[in-house]
């Protein structure tokens, strides 16, 4: 098994408050790895720390076996680490296509920009129809598509999604879930999915970690976790 991302005893926090207390996590190549947990468990902080936007306090981040712990965010993006942040974080005053082109202007995707743009439009035909519309005027589901599409324009190897289902209707959650599966199966990406929506994640993920209070408390393949009495009780409501 090769790992695209490995976290070793990762610690971080904000100001004086420590949030992560030695997180160990591995994202398997070509698979969807889910990081699950409730509000305030440290899921988003883990992603922001991986990207370097929140600085790690301790521990190691390995990307394809290389130590990238202290690399600044823009360099991480340029070696293929991509984060689709929670809440979409789009630029309301820019059009759909401007979002995509801006992302594709990094050195990493420049050469293939045109090609990736077409692939992205194939994945999200709706975005192609609305290419000249301002992002602020899109519906919630379309905004999430655009956030994902913008991430794809960065030509990622490791694709990290922070709560892509947040605030979407069940039908749209299903669509997003299918899209994420496609990214694994057709785009051959390694996905790290952070979610509160355990049902949706269990449906598409291959391997999952459960985080509580900044520590990984449980890990295993999805099938194992589904049978785990603690998971059943606390998360699946069975």
């Amino acid at each position: 098994m090769t790992y695209v991302l490995e976290l070793e005893k990762l610690e971080s926090g904000y100001g004086e408050t420590q949030v992560l207390f030695g997180v160990n996590l591995k994202a398997r190549k070509g698979q969807i790895t889910a990081l699950l947990g409730s509000n305030g468990a440290g899921k988003s902080t883990t992603l922001w720390t991986i990207m370097g936007i929140v600085k790690p306090w301790g521990g190691k981040i390995l990307f394809n076996g290389e130590d990238v712990t202290m690399l600044p965010p823009y360099k991480k993006v340029n070696i293929g680490m991509t984060l689709v942040p929670e809440g979409r974080r789009l630029w309301p005053q820019l059009t759909v296509e401007e979002h995509l082109i801006m992302a594709a202007s990094i050195p990493r995707s420049k050469e293939r920009a045109q090609e990736i743009l077409e692939m992205v439009y194939q994945l999200f035909p709706r975005l192609k129809e609305r290419r000249n519309q301002l992002a602020g005027t899109l519906s919630g589901g379309e905004q999430q598509m655009l956030a994902i599409a913008r991430g794809l324009m960065l030509n990622p190897v490791l694709f990290m999604l922070d709560e892509p289902s947040l605030g979407l209707a069940p039908k749209l959650v299903q669509e997003i879930a299918e899209t994420i599966s496609k990214l694994r199966d057709e785009w051959k990406l390694t996905v790290l999915l952070v979610e509160q929506n355990i049902h949706m994640s269990m449906q598409i993920a291959d391997y999952a970690y459960i985080i509580e209070n900044g520590r990984i408390v449980l890990e295993g393949t999805v099938d194992e976790l589904k049978e785990n009495p603690m998971v059943k009780k606390a998360y699946l409501g069975l």
Partner: peptide, 25 residues
Amino acid sequence: SKFGYGLAAIREDEDAAEVIGVDTV
């Protein structure tokens, strides 16, 4: 310029600018 678009990204949302690879500092 591309530089100017990067600045606009910083203005609108600096974290989002970082995650699309703008060397914000």
